[in-house]
Design a protein around this nucleic acid. Structure first.
Length: 649
RNA sequence: GCCGAUGUAGCUCAGGGGUAGAGCGUUUCCUUGGUAAGGAAGAGGUCAUGGGUUCAAAUCCCAUCAUUGGCUCCA
């Protein structure tokens, strides 16, 4: 007999060799029906695997990510089986479960192309195979066996994977006619896979290496119930409605022009208004934190970037130099602001008493991003960073770092960003040549970041190998409507540029010392931040930010004069109001302006004109009754002030 | 950059070898209407661009450009 400990710490005795499925059965038939995987002593297992020792277990149902994982991983195998049937000679790469669904990378063979239009056919085959309710059978094999099995089938990708595994840890899973190298766990059979949707086809380099063969990746998702699939697809559609590219067009915030160039956003008046308000907001915050504005040009001499090291690192992959016609000097579009700011630091001698100095600039930079990578406003070739560089003494580093964290957290709070991830990016320990600067400085800066985060009580994830080439960083990341992760705020420590630019300050010992630099951008880039803000709010911006706060709707043309009077009064009171004096019925005007997401609609007609009133309608919330114009002005201004005061707390 | 998809009116999209379509928007006129779509008429397109096939191409083929889902990269 063995002792099984459950998550609630209760212990039950079972026969040795009992399976997860049987344990579930012993609790309730319903649980047995729903259980998909089991963790036993921290090891994730099939529910058909016998448990032979005392174990602490957790049974995973669909609701657990482990349960979904097994479900989707099994679905990936099912898809592979379908592909094998439909495309004889197809070779398989890897086919994991992912956050939402699964994929399989395959090599369909020379000249064979799998297209979007083939997906329904594959789906159909999968359903057909699933209905056979084949079991997933696990088999442990030796490395030699494994290799000979896949070599015999010319599955070079599998063979490559196996050759990197250790003997004794290799297992196969087989269902129907398909056998795959796999760690598991899997479902007992294909029976539960009831609803399947293959979503897209994409190219994916074998092992993520662009020098190697590009395989065909097929993405899909599956569910135990058809209804769940429908809900998921519904949700995807809803998410698409929040897409900043769609809303940006609808609300006339930004556009692109093929003639101007790809990845070069054009801010339309309303978008510019929004962005300007964001910038002003941050400028006010920065004044409080002792930042000084600086302004630098859009280009810089190539020498500047040779000094900074950026040219060696990125020169050939960036926009190529602009030449002066007669002298033949070379200038680069600036890919970043820091070298310019270093030169500002150098413009005069600095004393230890002056430090830290903090130079802030909304600096527009240009980077040659690969064309396939461009995406709406989140990945562009020309963008404006809310950049600043702090030059401080080493002993001030941690404090300065913490102050920057405060600014970022403040801004996120102001904009109600709650679902963000904070990531500390450190060096890849096994790959030091990727980075410039001394080990000692790297260690100092890495520990400064880690300590600052700890002291701020932040929950961060640590990623090795994600550091910038010149220093470690702390990034604030959020997800977009389609679930992709984007970096917004960033703080980076840099010992390297001060070295390269030979930056100095005179210490209290009257000796020259090297300052440390912090690069930081709370929004990251205005473009990306606005994109994320659009998706976050679905275009319903907070009152203090929105380009148009109020729209005035006269009942008929007879009331246009009064409406204009209201408009002037509001505009003179710093309220961003517009007038909708189109020859339309009031119902139509309300509908149109509701759809434009203007926070307040003011309806003015006979009654209001007589009493100097406005009839207030709140976006999405209907009629709020009438009030005097003065009261409305006070009401709006108070609401904005309250919002901002709330943030200050 | 690579693999797949897409490109038709300002927007959303239908169509498809033989005169270019709808809805919304826009303009003009009628209407002056009290809380989510009043009516009529009009304007608006070299069907992304350049080649090719054809008596005839928006439609078929090729290339390019852009957008897009991924891969890779990201100072």
């Amino acid at each position: 007999m063995i002792n099984i400990t459950f998550p609630d710490q209760s212990v039950r005795e079972y026969q040795e060799g009992i399976t997860g499925y049987e344990i579930a059965q012993s609790i309730s038939p319903r649980l047995a029906k729903e259980v998909l995987a089991i963790t036993a002593n921290d090891q994730l297992l099939d529910i058909t695997r016998p448990i032979t020792t005392d174990a602490t277990i957790k049974l995973h149902k669909w609701e657990d990510s482990e349960g979904k994982h097994a479900f989707w991983h099994s679905s990936a195998h099912l898809m592979a089986e379908a592909l094998q049937t439909l495309y004889p000679g197809i070779k398989f790469g890897i086919g994991p479960a992912i956050e939402n669904g699964f994929y399989y990378d395959v090599d369909p063979g020379d000249g064979v192309i799998i297209k979007d239009s083939d997906l329904p056919r594959i789906e159909k085959k999968m359903k057909e195979l699933a209905s056979q309710k084949n079991t997933y059978v696990r088999k442990e094999v030796s490395k030699e066996e494994a290799l000979s099995f896949f070599n015999a089938r010319n599955e070079e990708y599998k063979s490559e994977l196996i050759s990197e595994l250790e003997d004794g840890t290799i297992s196969f899973y087989q269902q129907g006619n398909f056998t795959d190298l796999c760690r598991g766990p899997h479902l007992p059979s294909t029976a539960p896979i009831k609803a399947i949707k293959l979503l897209s086809v994409a190219g994916a380099y074998w092992r993520g290496d662009e020098k190697r063969k590009q395989l065909t990746r097929i993405y899909g998702i599956s569910f135990p119930k058809q209804k769940m699939l429908e809900e998921y697809l519904q949700m995807l559609e809803e998410a698409l409605k929040r897409d900043h590219r769609k809303i940006g067009k609808e609300l006339e915030l930004f556009t692109f022009s093929q003639k101007v160039g790809q990845g070069l956003p054009l801010w339309l008046p309303k978008g510019a208004k929004l962005r300007e308000r964001l910038e002003n907001f941050l400028k006010r915050v920065q004044v409080k934190y002792g930042y000084e504005p600086v302004i630098t040009p859009h280009i810089g001499n190539k020498e500047l970037y040779i000094t900074s090291g950026h040219y060696a690192k990125y020169g050939k992959d960036s926009f190529q130099p602009i030449n002066t016609p007669t002298e033949g000097e070379e200038f680069l579009l600036k890919p970043m602001n820091c070298p310019h700011h270093c030169e500002i630091y150098k413009a005069k001698p600095r004393s230890y008493k002056d430090l830290p100095v903090r130079f802030a600039e909304f600096g527009t930079v240009y980077r040659y991003e690969q064309s396939g990578e461009l995406h709406g406003l989140t990945r562009v070739r020309g963008f404006t960073q809310d950049d600043a560089h702090i030059f401080c003494r080493p002993d001030q580093l941690k404090d300065e770092f913490k102050k920057v964290i405060d600014i970022i957290l403040y801004i996120f709070k102001a904009l109600d960003f709650k679902d963000y991830i904070t990531q500390v990016s450190l060096r890849d320990p096994g790959n030091n040549e990727k980075y410039i600067g001394s080990d000692e400085n790297w260690e100092k800066s890495e520990s400064a970041i880690i300590e600052a985060c700890k002291e701020k009580g932040m929950k961060t994830i640590v990623e090795y190998g994600e550091a910038a080439f010149y220093g470690p960083k702390l990034d604030f990341m959020v997800r977009d409507a389609i679930g992709r992760k984007w970096q917004l705020g960033t703080i980076q420590v840099d010992y390297n540029l001060p070295e390269r630019f030979d930056l100095e300050y005179v210490g209290n010992d009257n000796q020259k010392h090297r300052p440390v630099m912090i690069h930081r951008a709370p929004f990251g880039s205005m473009e990306r931040f606005v994109a994320v803000l659009i998706e976050h709010t679905a275009g319903k911006f907070p009152l203090w930010l929105t380009p148009e706060q109020v729209v005035i709707l006269p009942i008929s043309e007879k009331h246009n004069d009064y409406a204009k009077k209201v408009l002037n009064l509001l505009n003179n009171s710093d309220i961003r109001a517009v007038l909708d004096d189109r020859n339309e019925k009031i119902g139509k005007k309300i509908r149109d302006n509701e759809l434009k997401r203007t926070p307040y609609l003011l309806i003015v007609g006979e009654k209001e004109a007589e009493n100097n009133e406005v009839a207030v309608r709140k976006q999405g919330d209907g009629d709020k009754g009438s009030m005097s114009i003065d009261d409305f002005v006070n009401f709006i201004n108070a609401e904005v002030e309250n919002m901002l005061a709330e943030i200050e707390k």
